[in-house]
């Protein structure tokens, strides 16, 4: 399934990242990298620090120690909208759509950072503003076609069922044409059929658009099927890193999952 893709050099390098809230340690000296065109899974028991890791990558949290380098550029402190501008998009564990807006408008926000016209031009809806709006609409329609959500484009997202909301959230992330896509449990709460659909989309994104993907997922069969390499976190520490097969047979991972005392 993954044949034919060229996995390139590291696009994201995490080096010795530690993060704590007050006295609670969420991450402790975690290092790993993500290569171009790769699907990289992060797994671990609840509370292992997986979501915190994503939040560090796209700047929602700022780690106390360690560095994150994206496309070779090392950064100390970056704000989420900066990270988005550099080409990092993501979805959330608990859907974070803009509930008062339609599907189309939600996805259009993904392209906001590519829009250049000033508010005065937009107020007149004239010249560059109108042209830009239509160009980006066309681009968004491609994403809508890709994810097969044409029939709901004018529906307010609040009225959609859970599975479709997850898909719209992915669409919003894809609309930004990211180089790195962070997916936080994209298949949580889905039935088998929806999981298959979502897996197909994730693979297609990776395959056709060449996007690198970091994936958090609890369903092990999904993780093993989709990902090229897997990082395992437990209590904020990295306990394993490797191909799905290596990780599956790792003693520490088995212990962490089965709850054996350390």
């Amino acid at each position: 399934m993954t044949a034919g893709r060229k996995i390139g050099r590291p696009i994201l390098e995490i080096d010795g990242v530690s993060l704590a809230f007050g006295g609670v340690v969420a991450l402790q000296g975690v290092s790993f990298d993500v290569r171009e065109h790769e699907i990289r899974a992060i797994i671990g028991p609840n509370g292992a620090g997986k979501s915190s890791m994503l939040n560090v990558i796209n700047g929602v949290y700022h780690p106390q120690q360690g560095t994150v380098a994206f496309k070779g550029r090392r950064r100390h402190r970056v704000d989420p909208h900066e990270a988005a501008r550099q080409g990092i998009a993501r979805t959330f564990q608990n859907i974070a759509l803009f509930r008062g807006m339609t599907v189309l408008d939600n996805i259009m926000t993904g392209r906001n950072l590519k829009m250049k016209s000033s508010f005065l031009q937009q107020a007149l809806y004239w010249g560059p503003a109108k042209r830009e709006e239509l160009e980006h609409r066309a681009k968004v329609e491609e994403v809508i076609d890709f994810l097969e959500i044409q029939h709901i484009r004018k529906t307010p997202v609040g009225r959609l069922p859970y599975g479709l909301q997850k898909r719209v959230e992915l669409a919003r992330a894809l609309a930004a044409e990211p180089e790195l896509l962070l997916l936080d449990e994209p298949m949580a709460g889905m039935n088998l059929e929806e999981k298959q659909d979502m897996s197909r989309f994730v693979l297609d994104v990776n395959d056709q658009m060449g996007t690198s993907i970091v994936l958090i997922e609890h369903d092990m069969s999904v993780v093993m099927d989709l990902s090229d390499r897997v990082v395992v976190l437990d209590y904020g520490r990295k306990i394993a890193d490797g191909t799905p097969d290596e990780v599956r047979n790792n003693r520490g991972v088995i212990d962490a999952y089965l709850g054996v005392a350390h």
Binding site: P80, A96, F98, R99, G100, D105, M115, Q122, A176
Partner: peptide, 20 residues
Amino acid sequence: SIGRAWMAVRDMDVAAEVVG
């Protein structure tokens, strides 16, 4: 786009930042 940015900030500010 400015109107969508406003509504995004209104509906969920953290997500709005993440979207850029």
